[in-house]
Design a binder for these strands. Structure first.
Lengths: 127, 127
DNA sequence: TAACTGTTCTATTATTAGTATAGCAGAACT
DNA sequence: AGTTCTGCTATACTAATAATAGAACAGTTA
């Protein structure tokens, strides 16, 4: 688990953690069916409170990325082959829109935006 | 100023406001050199506190999108032709990465991601 | 049985979000 | 000149969130 938390960041710790777990899954370094470390183990590993890790896990549950089996552990859901839910798709677009608008206003061209998005995809999936 | 605030949203009001102003600029409905309404006028218009609007404006200043002339008003900076700053570019990418990773994990294909990004660009710029 | 698991409860501290009121000094307009 | 409007500042308050902390419960697993 190659996770690094920056306590001084303006991004909450539980968000940093959730994002990095999502990245690891996108990269294929964590796969569907894999178990995440226990909240206590990961909290100790990251020198962070148990409740903070717990909050990250539940955010991932809320996004539909993992499932938690009480008294047992957290398990990564397989990446759905049926494609993305309409609801999730809409949520992604709503998150994307303000960032793209900001990029345009700051002088980034549409071509550059597409190019950077591709770079990120290559970085994550190797495509 | 076609701005609509949802007080019950989990997104802070000052963020909603800043994002919508950015969108208006990206759409060309607000142009460089245009003056934004005074903090009091907009606050009254939106039934929101003056300080909340003030915070939005200062966030836009921090992003380099508007400039505030004390005792006078807030003016939109012209969209820079020289292209985006390296610093701003890096910030945009860091915001983009976790969203794209989440989209992948939720089953959105790279092609779909590019397609949706294009749709947003068309919606904003008409390209 | 014993260690480990997620869950729940209570509590505290610090920060942020939002509202509210008031006053200041410069700019703009009449 | 004087009034109004402007952004700015200061203070105060409520509510919510972020993060930590310790403890206990009950089911799982070795």
């Amino acid at each position: 688990m190659f996770i690094q938390i920056e306590p001084t960041s303006d991004i909450p710790i539980y968000t940093q953690l959730a994002n990095q777990i999502i990245e690891l899954i996108a990269r294929g370094q964590l796969k569907g069916g894999d178990a995440l470390p226990s909240v206590r183990a990961l909290a100790s590993d990251l020198s962070v409170n148990m409740h903070t890790v717990n909050k990250s896990y539940h955010e991932l549950v809320h996004k539909g990325i993992i499932r938690i089996v009480p008294k047992s552990g957290a398990i990564i859901n397989p990446i759905v082959q049926e494609g993305i839910t309409n609801e999730n798709c809409h949520r992604i677009i709503e998150q994307l829109k303000p960032i793209i608008a900001e990029a345009l206003v700051l002088g980034m061209s549409p071509e550059e935006i597409g190019q950077h998005a591709s770079s990120i995809l290559v970085d994550l999936k190797g495509e």
